[in-house]
Write a protein that binds this DNA or RNA. Structure first.
Lengths: 110, 110
DNA sequence: TCAGTTACAAACCAGTAGGTTAGTGGCGTG
DNA sequence: CACGCCACTAACCTACTGGTTTGTAACTGA
């Protein structure tokens, strides 16, 4: 309590932190979506074109999940044709340095 | 070719790197296994005790996968009762700093 | 004999991730 | 009319992940 970290408490906290972080980064397309939004805000259709191998359904699903996690922000415009934009939230931006490190890790194992 | 990175080549490389790295870190128990081996070499039974919530089958499965990926090394001893030890490979050790960063990322989203 | 130690494997199952297909709606153009 | 633009949704499907249960083997001690 007085500055002493109890091993079990620390391990449990680690666990929650790791679990939550993995929720953000794991998934076939997640990081690629983030990569494409790192540069700038984009509309759904732009992401579709940048990631041609993702199914429409999955892309939307992923975007929705990432918005719910607080990684992305979605802005809808009252326009026709429909216009929706996605951008990294501030928290989402914090994931970018991790992305670089993930790539470095990939180098060791490829 | 002459120092000019072609966008598509770079994106494809990123993709493979990210895909491979995610193979290493994603999975319900993977990072926790690595966490417990960060400190020292351990036997299977020790890991079981340290990770009581993983099923035997899954723990073995994960250890096997991590060995195949080159993250862990497994050493069998010709003893009874059977004695098998797992330790981080050199490449596996390179994952540890990422683990710290992953925890930091978790803080943003918890 | 049984129960304990150790480290696995096989068979089966439920839930989930990623995918295909068909559909929605409003507007503009040929 | 059909097709294009845009951004979704629902229904259905397959493969995979994590899990439960049952089993293997050798040795030791009560």
């Amino acid at each position: 309590m007085n500055g002493i970290k109890q091993p079990e408490l620390m391990v449990e906290e680690d666990r929650l932190l790791i679990k939550k972080a993995l929720e953000v980064v794991c998934g076939k397309w997640r990081l690629f979506i983030l990569l494409h939004l790192a540069e700038k805000t984009r509309r759904y259709s732009e992401l579709r074109r940048l990631l041609p191998d993702v199914s429409e359904k999955v892309l939307i699903q992923e975007l929705k999940a990432l918005v719910q996690l607080g990684v992305l922000e979605k802005e809808s415009f009252n326009e026709v044709p429909p216009r929706v934009e996605y951008r990294l939230s501030d928290r989402g931006k914090a994931v970018m340095p991790l992305l670089l490190q993930i790539k470095e890790i990939g180098r060791y194992f490829l």
